[in-house]
């Protein structure tokens, strides 16, 4: 190969609709893994803070494993790892489980920090007004935690999109997987991946923009 490389963009543009669809799949799996991650992360944070014995151990182990091993390793675990026990997940579920596991671990630490940063005096004040513990959390604690963890949560969503590209290594046809599929059929590897890079960039910017807009609506104080 040398400088006389001829770029061929036509096939890429022909498959652009397919790539954009795959981009939707990427967004979908990322968003779904965030939803699961938020619920599990909140649980993990609460158990790590207030749990006892083996519950606490499980939560801590989960969090530390998610944060201290490569995301690809976590994906492999849900792929080959579970395969060792005769459980064979479809590629979509491998990616979804891997991302959710990872999101939950990172978000748990964010939530823990957020929960700890709401002073106990806020809870006292709410209780002294006759609010029950649930009402206190719903009206006083959670809204304040949400503001603190909002930015890290946005970052995690971006990470989830970027991480989902690992789907291509376990045969999942999200944006990267689809790109690889087309690239290997046409041998226009550079062109395909260049366009995909642009698509990722756009997706990330859309997420950040939407997040900023929402923050502006939500947090007026």
């Amino acid at each position: 190969m040398s400088f006389d490389y001829n770029f061929h963009w036509r096939p890429v543009f022909k498959s652009l609709p397919d790539l954009i669809w795959a981009g939707m799949t990427t967004l979908q799996v990322a968003a779904l893994s965030m939803l699961i991650g938020i619920v599990l992360g909140l649980l993990l944070a609460l158990v790590r803070m207030h749990g006892h014995g083996s519950y606490r151990w499980v939560a801590t182990t989960w969090i530390e494993l998610a944060r201290n091993t490569p995301a690809l390793f976590q994906l492999f675990f849900f792929g080959f790892g579970l395969g060792a026990f005769g459980i064979h997940l479809a590629p979509f579920y491998i990616v979804l489980c891997g991302l959710s596991f990872n999101n939950a671990g990172y978000l748990a630490e964010n939530f823990r920090g957020g929960l700890q940063s709401v002073p106990h005096t806020q809870v006292r004040a709410a209780r002294s007004l006759g609010m029950g513990i649930v009402r206190t959390y719903v009206s006083i604690v959670v809204p304040q935690v949400l503001r603190i963890v909002y930015h890290p949560m946005t970052n995690q969503m971006v990470w989830a999109v970027l991480m989902s590209s690992l789907g291509m290594l376990v045969g999942f046809r999200e944006l990267s997987g689809e790109t690889q599929f087309f690239a290997s059929r046409t041998f226009r590897i550079f062109e395909y991946f260049a366009v995909t890079a642009v698509l990722y960039y756009i997706i990330v910017k859309i997420i950040l923009g939407a997040s900023r807009l929402l923050a502006w609506r939500l947090f007026r104080y």
Binding site: Y5, L162, M163, F190, A197, Y200, K205
Partner: peptide, 20 residues
Amino acid sequence: RSVPLIIQLVLFFNFAPIIG
């Protein structure tokens, strides 16, 4: 920071030969 590392890797690896 906005493009997956894996895409960056594939892209660069296939771009390098193009510029010799």
